[in-house]
Amino acid sequence: METEMKFKQLLTQYTGLQPENISNDMRFREDLSMSSLDFMTLLGDIEDEFDIEFEESDQVHITTVGEAIELLGRYL
């Protein structure tokens, strides 16, 4: 839960939406209007925040907030 909240707080900086208004089924591109640059920059911030390093092959499959949180969970 703490991971999810931290992740959504990061996402707030990109979307302006409060964490409680970000649901896990939201899609980065279609629902949150994030460009590829935004998404990749967000991944970089997550890596810094959680001190992890994503495999590139994992990154391409993420389309929703829930998928990103699940992926993050696997690295922690």
């Binding site: 590829s36 640059l37 990749m40 920059t41 590139e56 391409v60």
Partner: peptide, 13 residues
Amino acid sequence: IQLLQNRIYMHSN
């Protein structure tokens, strides 16, 4: 090209 650009974005700092 898009795939490459996305990788570059990750390293654009």
